[in-house]
């Protein structure tokens, strides 16, 4: 059953990443240079939709709160995030979209994945040094959500109902998706990448 769900949801996720343009490095780069923000609008819409459905479903008792999985906050999240940002920006791929792009026939994505496997292996080898550095120690309470989500094992940073706050933030994501312009950068608009 789990494997069947992995096949269905995974295929759905991969197909959607392709349909929103995220398997194309030109689309990802267009977002990161702030020239074409369509993808940013799409992703904010998706996060907002997901939040409202998940927290709404929890309040109605339809979604198991135990399915939530919140990751720890630590200084390494910031350092790793900066690194991922650089790797993403220079290549136009992130881990998920790189894997999907390779499946759509992009040869450069195969190089991205190869580099990624080596990078992950390098982290595996250097992990003890990071562990010893203390930069993997929890900050801000570790596995924490913005508000207190009823029934979840995670604490809230603020003592407010986390499900209601989650729906509100979901609405804000969707509103920002609406008001975000299609481009924030006038740089070289003439050289628009043609639709593929």
């Amino acid at each position: 059953m789990q494997i069947l769900l992995a096949l269905l949801i995974g295929a759905g996720f991969g197909a959607m990443l392709d349909r929103i343009g995220a398997t194309n490095p030109s689309v990802l780069t267009g977002m990161l240079t702030l020239r074409r923000l369509n993808l940013a609008k799409t992703i904010m819409m998706a996060i907002g939709t997901g939040s409202i459905l998940m927290f709404g479903g929890q309040m109605l008792g339809l979604v198991d709160v135990a399915h939530m999985s919140v990751k720890s906050a630590y200084v390494g999240v910031l350092i790793g995030g900066l690194m991922l940002g650089v790797g993403w920006a220079i290549s136009g791929f992130c881990p998920g979209t790189g894997v999907c792009a390779a499946a759509t026939g992009r040869k450069d994505a195969v190089f991205f994945i190869s580099g990624g496997l080596l990078g992950a292996a390098a982290y595996m080898v250097t992990y003890p040094a990071w562990k010893a550095s203390g930069l993997l120690e929890d900050i801000l309470g570790g596995k924490v959500t913005l508000g207190d989500v009823p029934g979840s094992k995670f604490d809230g940073l603020f003592a407010v109902p986390g499900d209601i706050l989650g729906i509100l933030i979901g609405v804000i994501f969707i509103l920002v998706a609406y008001v975000l312009p299609h481009s924030l950068s006038g740089l070289d608009k003439g050289a628009e990448v043609p639709a593929e």
């Binding site: 290549s91 881990p95 790189g98 990078g119 992950a120 990071w130």
Partner: peptide, 12 residues
């Protein structure tokens, strides 16, 4: 890019 992105992702 893949090397840096995945090293960073695992650190994060």
């Amino acid at each position: 890019g893949g090397f840096i992105a995945l090293y960073g992702a695992r650190l994060a």
